[in-house]
Design a protein around this nucleic acid. Structure first.
Lengths: 188, 188
DNA sequence: ATTAGCATATGACGAGCATCATGTTAAAAG
DNA sequence: CTTTTAACATGATGCTCGTCATATGCTAAT
């Protein structure tokens, strides 16, 4: 059955959002088109009316997830009262973020898998990393531009590394300690 | 055909080493039993004489990879002339390590995927993280034990985060810059 | 009101997956 | 020397995967 143009656009949107969530939760290889479409409320056959391949979906869903994450970080920095870096970092290293990879930072959920993807996805991620570093440059202290840039990069690395480790570890207390240590270091 | 006990033990060893490499290169889901066994010089059917399931292989291969990585880090710290922390970090954040995930840090190659694995794998990884933190505690500066522990954790986070990001990014220059910034932060 | 177009559903395709049953053969045990 | 055992090969199992051909029936344009 055909649906209205508006409905079709909504379907595409729902597929994208579902994919952005499920890829982060299960990995690119961990979720199939059929399950994904079912979760979006459609049947698997309809997928190829919206995307030409899974690879294309991966690229589009990654773009979506990365943009959302960056927008959220920007908003948190803007609206922060007090230290904006501390505000961003304490959200990033919160137990909420750790427990909910599906709506969180795509690099923390998919980083190593991105490195195995095609050029399209990696370029999108590269742009995101650049943006994130530029954002962090406006938040960190440092006399020279070069000093701030280096600090921005290492700040991002601490955030990412601490979150990935906190998620991998099986011990609640150790996980909490990792998040806390990362946060303390960033706040410096 | 049957082979000698020694040969069989060698076969198991070869399967383990091949798996430890291929999992890090392609992810747990990215490589199948058949391809793995072919790479190890055997046929897929023989696999279940050595391991009861792929999950068991994942656990054993992860143990192997983590132990090897930790042993290498320890040795580098011991044999370093000058600052042992700098020695370990510059190996970890080298372009060689970045370009060769198959023999490098398992957490950097598989971190988010570990978080989705069963208890067995996650416990093994937890032990490794503890060991790595303990090792780094002996290398970092800090007055109190607590201060050194926090520094050890955040140092590990910087190393991991920088390596993951450097691998994900599609731009040689940016990738190099990320490794360098991480290294400068750890040394500094 | 009629028709053309297209967003979906249904179902099938071949490929690849983990797993297992069976056969073969040589090492180990007696 | 005979028998047992077990490592590996071969091939098949049932399942899931990405992809696509076709059918359906509503929407949008005429």
């Amino acid at each position: 059955m055909k649906v209205s143009r508006a409905q079709a656009a909504l379907s595409r949107e729902r597929i994208l959002e579902t994919a952005a969530k499920l890829f982060r939760e299960h990995g690119f290889d961990g979720i199939g088109i059929a399950d994904l479409m079912k979760e979006a409320g459609l049947t698997h056959g309809g997928f190829y009316g919206h995307f030409s391949s899974k690879e294309e979906l991966i690229a589009d869903a990654s773009t979506r997830a990365l943009k959302d994450t960056f927008a959220l970080m920007s908003k948190q920095a803007e609206r922060a009262q007090g230290d904006p870096l501390a505000a961003v970092a304490s959200r990033y290293l919160s137990s909420k973020h750790r427990n909910d990879p599906g709506t969180g930072c795509p690099l923390a959920a998919l980083g190593p898998e991105v490195a195995r993807q095609g050029q399209a996805v990696r370029e999108i991620v590269t742009d995101y990393v650049r943006s994130a570093v530029n954002l962090l440059m406006t938040l960190v202290a440092g006399k020279t531009r070069a000093a701030r840039r280096q600090k921005a990069i290492s700040t991002y690395a601490v955030l990412l590394g601490a979150l990935v480790t906190a998620r991998a570890v099986d011990d609640r207390e150790l996980s909490r300690e990792i998040l806390e240590a990362g946060l303390a270091t960033v706040k410096g």
